[in-house]
Design a protein around this nucleic acid. Structure first.
Lengths: 226, 226
DNA sequence: TAGATTGTTAATCGATTAACAATC
DNA sequence: TAGATTGTTAATCGATTAACAATC
């Protein structure tokens, strides 16, 4: 089911065509829902059934998926296991991405102790901080080094992602240092938008306080509605 | 500057008109940039100057702001302090929102220890967990109670927001319980999309692994580009 | 006043939804 | 085969950008 379409699908994929961020934002969500279906033992699903579960539309799901290829089969729908795997590949989850965390505070601790990321293929291999009291200690078996050791570490280890969990004022400086050392992707939790001239560097900004303010806006709006 | 327009602006505001989520998502960002300008001592700014700083367009900024009123002045631009305050009000930051955290794990610890949220008007007033070893202990002076005490606590204290930082499998059940106890807004970190029939309940889902997968997609895409 | 910049309308662009022929 | 459901084109909707008269 769908296997034969795979080759066809893959051939159709044109990674150079720009795919909208709106679509990309939805991919992890598809992945999650398909994972849930998989663990429930569901074998196949139609775009319509999935749209009901996801509070979306069948049209949107088919459009989104067809950006990457034809993963379904007329009259049948989509094979859950196959589609889950394919979206995983699109998201790069078939590869391991080594991660370091810069700034060994509470958020870093939360990330390193949360096994979900490791299971998805994003193991934390080291943490860095400026606080000398932390040097040599470990959290969840992951060592904390001095920021001064960053360069050497990056030389000797493959680092795919650097998570930045440090105060706003140090974030830009540290991010620039990371990029100058060859880091190509940054998962930024500092409350500042990072941007780089280098087109090769990708950044994902996570602003928890922005999220909280959005919630607050919606609370406020509800109160003012009749 | 702009003061006179204020009354006019406020009168124009129609909270019942639906404002798009795209606009709302940008509000905290405006608030942040204006806050930075404020602390830099900048007094006025034009939509064009701001658009350069924010990597946006002057048109979009003016359109966004005019959803809520006319905050600027022709020939002058926007008064930074005034606009910052006004956006703060729109976001509900002029009020205090008491927050509880359900699930006293590492992420909860990170939130409660991060003073930024308190400064924005979102103090954590209590935490709850199922682990009896934690009952009666405190983190950052905030007490941890048993989940069984939730009902009584909510009766005796004003709780505006409940942050959910617990495993996926307990999240839905706990969220339903919270809503049944009268909680109207949930900041959800569990890896599941929460939804409620009750229109009054607002939810903000924060999916860190979705964010990480988005980053991963962009890494993968870069590699495949020529 | 002249210059600058807003608020706002109109034009464009892109994303979502609808429809349906293709096909399993 | 008949029924179901995709892949894909066309229509619609909404969001962004451009333009400009209003006005400080």
């Amino acid at each position: 089911m769908g296997r034969i379409k795979l080759t066809y699908g893959i051939e159709r994929v044109n990674m150079n065509e720009q795919i909208s961020q709106a679509v990309i934002r939805r991919l992890p969500r598809y992945y999650r829902y398909l994972g849930d279906l998989l663990s429930q033992g569901v074998e196949r699903i139609s775009s319509n059934e999935l749209s009901v579960k996801m509070n979306s539309t069948a049209s949107q799901i088919r459009q989104d998926l067809n950006n990457f290829g034809g993963f379904g089969q007329q009259g049948y729908g989509y094979n859950v296991k196959f589609l889950h795997e394919e979206i995983g590949k699109i998201l790069g989850l078939d590869k391991v991405h080594n991660m370091i965390i810069v700034g060994a505070g509470n958020l870093a601790k939360a990330i390193v102790r949360y096994d979900k990321f490791e299971r998805l293929g994003f193991p934390v291999i080291a943490m860095f901080d400026v606080d000398s009291k932390l040097f040599g200690t470990k959290i969840n078996d992951i060592p904390i080094y001095s920021l001064d050791e960053l360069e050497e570490f990056i030389k000797n280890n493959r680092v795919d992602i650097a998570a930045l969990t440090l105060p706003k004022n140090n974030a830009v400086k540290t991010a620039n240092k990371l990029v100058s050392l060859g880091i190509k992707s940054i998962w930024n939790f500092a409350h500042v938008d990072l941007q780089f001239d280098d087109e090769d560097v990708v950044v994902e900004n996570v602003h928890l306080s922005d999220s909280l303010m959005q919630l607050s806006y919606n609370i406020t709006r509800k109160c003012n509605d009749e």
